[in-house]
Nucleic acid binder design. Sequence first.
DNA 1: TTGACATGTTATCAGTCGATTACTACTCTC
DNA 2: GAGAGTAGTAATCGACTGATAACATGTCAA
Lengths: 203, 203
Amino acid sequence: MSVDETRTAPRMKAADRRELILAAATAVFGAKSYVGTTTDEVARAAGVSQPYVVRLFGTKAKLYTAVIERAYARIIEDFRRALPGPPEGRRDRMATAYAALLEERGMLPVIANSTALGGDPELGPVARAGFNSVWRFVRDEAEFSEQETRDFMANGMLINAIVGLRLVGAYGTEAAVTEMLDSCLPGAGDRVRGLLPAADEPW
Amino acid sequence: MSVDETRTAPRMKAADRRELILAAATAVFGAKSYVGTTTDEVARAAGVSQPYVVRLFGTKAKLYTAVIERAYARIIEDFRRALPGPPEGRRDRMATAYAALLEERGMLPVIANSTALGGDPELGPVARAGFNSVWRFVRDEAEFSEQETRDFMANGMLINAIVGLRLVGAYGTEAAVTEMLDSCLPGAGDRVRGLLPAADEPW
DNA sequence: TTGACATGTTATCAGTCGATTACTACTCTC
DNA sequence: GAGAGTAGTAATCGACTGATAACATGTCAA
């Protein structure tokens, strides 16, 4: 070979490698769902060997748990950053922050899919905790009313469904979908392209 | 044994057996999700052998496809039955019809989970078609405005998330969940108990 | 009643995939 | 510079599970 192939991944502090793997795992899990993804795919996406992924996180379920927790933490973080400013624009700023997550590979699909995980003994509690933390934030920290909270969350769940169903692929080509996205996601139009993890995903 | 065990399942027309298996599969898939369920579990729930399930439906994915299609068809059917009557009560009647699906074992979880299936090459198109058919019905046949449609669907997706997350288990015990369910599901309070497929589901 | 088709079973396989084991190599401190 | 801890790999296993093959039994028309 003319290319100087590195046999093993370049050395890295375990904490950094963890974060790198989490980001890769988010993209892959987001694209192919929990069960549809193998630890080997995650490993290859992260540029390390499959056993190393397992050893760093213990089990596949624990890895996914970490992915979910990281995703929800990220949402809360973004929401919190959207709080300061005129109160009447708060809701829109938060919605925009949510829409902006679309650009983070896999982040939104992971969250969207997490709402279907309640039945899993191990992942269920984590998903519930994540959902609950968002609800609490909106209600307590952002100080939405009960009604506003419900509407905000409902709208978010609709976005999740659209993402989970991969309806974004039909944006621009099917009227109903375009209409839907435009009315759900502020400023989605420009972002929506190049949205979900590419490759082996047939629309 | 004192009990007279039947060695093989009693004879039945294949069409009836199909429906029986579909109902059983809905309950099991609804409780444990697509990947979390084995064809053997479905078979045992339906009282037949595992190979027979596979042979009747071809593959596990095709079985699940049939389950999803049956569930969405059922929704549309129930919605359509809720149409006649005073127009101002239409939305509430449809919401009630949706809530009533809670009593059909697995029906709502299956639908809820289907919105996370877009990434699957085989199940994705089916899930999208189901979602789209509901949207179309609400918009065209029930004649909701664009705004009303979005709100109605969003509320439905919130219900789906609550169901998918198995939050109903906390109804009555946690204030946020009780508040949520009561405001999402008309008359949910009385129905909500004995809701999701029992047994091996740890809350 | 017979034979052809439909309904069902038991036994078994083959691929997949998460996990384990045993080993290598880098790096950093003392 | 030695050696101990850390970062990583290759090889392999064992269990699960969807699918297939081969076979058995019931049903019904002519």
